[in-house]
Amino acid sequence: MKKVRLSLIGFGVVGQGLAELLQTKRDLLRREYDLDVALVSVANSRHGFIYREEGLDIATLLELAARRQPLTQHPGVRHWSSALEGLQATQADILAEATWTNLRDAEPGLSHVRTALQQGMHVTLANKGPAALAASELLDLARQQGVQFRMEATVMAGTPVLSTVREGMAGVEVHAVRGILNGTTNYILSAMAQGRGYAEVLAEAQAQGYAEADPTADVEGYDVVAKTVILAALVFGQFIKPAQVQRQGITGVTLEQVQQAARDGRRIKLIASLSRDGEQLQASVEPVALPLEDPLAHVDGAMNAITFHGDSLSTVTISGPGAGRLQTGQGLLADVIAIAKTL
């Protein structure tokens, strides 16, 4: 049985989703992958970093989180006030980084990832910030240290996008990518296509948890810009900055425009687009009126989808959930399993 020691920084919705999957799928991991994952450390912003050499009890952690009790109440743990201090003082095979996404300077996640890689730990990300702002540096650092830096959960949560294009489509020369990569905006535009107004649908999305109280990152396209930058790095090997992505959100899309598109046999979707023109990579995030024969035109609600255009496989479209507690946790888990195969 292969034993893997896992450190988890960020114990909010996504981190708890991963922990729950580690608990519920423990027998499957042992049976199908000959893998025993011990969660040896967990950190969050409120309670700091806890560590237990022989592994933490996941049921206890989830119960403490549900009751909003300090994680330090877990029996037999060592404690550091900050995640970075705890990470520097302890050892694990893999770090799963699931803190909040900060697209200004990627902190504190960037420091967590950098420190883990410098210590020879493999890393998997759900946090888009470090990948969007420092992918080149972190991938280089991982290569220098002989470890893996994976980020399946950063694009379409647990829907296997990055692993599909990098491994399942190995040998295909991809020349363009188009995708619906944000559930909030797709939910809004899908409802507007049924004749409802933007403000009404946004309020409904917020009430149902699809949109944040401040929906700017979603509706103005910043979330999709981050994912577009990540795709540029991993699909095309080109490291661009968020400011290099032409961006237009959906706040200016009117009900009249949506209805006119329908009369023209089209549907408006917020589309992330990457295409190679010689050595130049064109990148954009903007509302596009798609013809009905386009598979992306039929992706509705909070679902996401992405289409890869290549040579030996002309068109490959992947659709699935792009957010969610267990869905994003699944992206992290898939990376943990992939990394464990190489240990």
Rank of each mutant, 00 (worst) to 15 (best):
S7M: 11
F11C: 11
E20H: 13
E32C: 15
D34Q: 07
V40Y: 01
A43V: 11
N44I: 04
F49W: 09
I50F: 06
Y51N: 07
L56M: 02
T60E: 12
E63C: 08
P70F: 07
A83T: 00
L84Q: 01
Q91V: 12
A92Y: 07
I94W: 08
A96R: 12
E97C: 14
T99V: 14
V113A: 07
R114F: 09
T115L: 13
N127K: 09
L133M: 13
L139E: 12
Q145M: 03
M151I: 10
A153D: 00
T154P: 03
L162K: 04
V172P: 07
V177D: 04
L181Y: 09
Y187N: 13
L189V: 02
L189P: 11
E200F: 09
V201R: 05
A203N: 13
E204A: 10
Q206G: 01
Y210E: 05
T216H: 05
D223Y: 10
K227G: 03
V229R: 00
V229N: 01
V229H: 01
L231E: 00
V235D: 02
Q238C: 10
R247S: 08
G252R: 07
T254L: 15
V258M: 06
Q259H: 14
Q260N: 15
A262Y: 05
I268D: 09
L270W: 02
S284H: 04
V285D: 05
P287C: 11
D311T: 15
D311M: 10
V316M: 14
L332A: 11
A334P: 15
I337D: 05
I337K: 14
